[in-house]
């Protein structure tokens, strides 16, 4: 039911934007006020969350080493998996953030009669995640065309490569398909893989459905509902938003407002949700710390003053036995008093 709820929520959002944007005067709300508000919530929320994390110190060096650490000269260090220098940490983080290194390691375990447990490489999640994230990234980059005037050359290159197959008119972008497929695959995986289905929350389905709806509305606008859309008007509005002089010229179709509204919801939802993994992945101590803790002391700012049970106390308790058994002591036994 959690996934059904996500659909209902997104349908409701679509209806709000669709109907809302038809009310006279409201386009300004959906086209200007909400985007500004959403962006403020996004930026403010994102920064707040990252600062909130950063306020807590990292008391201990808890790197997870996924390969041989640096030790003796003749033992080959795995510099990417057990980094010892800042450069090596940067390289490890690069692989993690850009290539999803840890997901690439994924295996699938099965228990067979015997018992006999098998582990098979399982790259599906890695593939789905790559498709989803990179499609999203490229689409965001392509959208810069709408906000920048003149359009930077690199945006053109991205569009050129993205549309390389030149299928359809206007040319279909690979990433449009990629984002839809990515959402569908990640969503389907949540339903089909039993572990994942069991742990999934509304918070897991909702963003996927929302992003799927954003992609659908975008695709409808670009490929199918072009007559409703005056791209010149839109660009005038979007460039206006960036230059803080937004103007809504002639009427823009509802599909545009739906698209923009869903994006606003996503932006506003972002800082309060698991989507903050985008920031958190940079700050995870098991990945971004050096494995040099015996060579360089890591400092804990709140290190409490705690002393061990003292040697003196220990010897006081056991001195007699120690002396009797020839274990060296700091203080000799007091001279024995004569019993009689």
């Amino acid at each position: 039911m959690k996934y059904a709820f996500s659909f209902l929520a997104v349908i409701a959002l679509v209806l709000i934007a669709w109907l809302g944007s038809q009310i006279p005067g409201m386009p300004y709300l959906f086209g200007v006020a909400l985007p500004y508000l959403a962006l403020m919530i996004f930026l403010g929320g994102f920064v707040y969350r990252v600062v909130h994390w950063a306020k807590s110190p990292v008391p201990f060096s808890i790197q997870t080493t996924c390969g041989q650490g640096k030790s003796l000269d003749f033992i080959k260090q795995d510099r990417l998996e057990a980094p010892n220098t800042t450069a090596e940490v940067v390289a490890r983080m690069f692989l993690e953030i850009v290539c999803f290194r840890s997901l690439f390691r994924n295996t699938k375990s099965e228990i067979h009669d015997g018992p006999h447990i098998t582990y098979e490489s399982s790259k599906w999640l890695w593939v789905f995640a790559l498709i989803f994230h990179y499609s999203f990234l490229v689409i965001v980059l392509r959208h810069l065309r709408l906000f920048l005037d003149p359009v930077p050359a690199c945006v053109g290159w991205v569009e050129f490569i993205d549309g390389l197959f030149q299928i359809g008119a206007p040319t279909w972008y690979m990433t449009d398909i990629g984002l839809l497929a990515g959402c569908a695959l990640l969503f389907g995986r949540r339903l089909i893989t039993r572990h994942v289905r069991f742990i999934s929350l509304v918070n897991d389905y909702f963003p996927l459905v929302l992003i799927f709806a954003i992609a659908i509305t975008g695709i409808l606008m670009r490929y199918f509902l072009r007559t409703d859309i005056d791209i010149v008007n839109i660009k005038q509005l979007t460039v206006g938003l960036v230059t803080f002089s937004p103007v809504i010229g002639a009427k823009i179709g509802a599909i545009f407002y739906i698209h923009v509204f869903l994006v606003c919801v996503l932006l506003a939802y972002f800082p309060f949700s698991k989507l903050m993994h985008m920031g958190g992945v940079f700050m995870s101590p098991t990945r971004n710390m050096k494995n040099n803790t015996r060579a360089v002391r890591h400092v804990n700012p709140w290190n409490p003053r705690i002393l061990p049970h003292s040697y003196a106390g220990y010897e006081d308790e056991f001195r007699e036995y120690m002396v009797e058994n020839g274990i060296p002591v700091e203080k000799e036994l007091p001279p024995k008093k004569d019993e009689e």
Partner: peptide, 12 residues
């Protein structure tokens, strides 16, 4: 904090 906030329940 990070471990509380960042999990996406991917199930890996």
């Amino acid at each position: 904090k990070i471990f509380m906030d960042c999990c996406v329940r991917c199930g890996a």
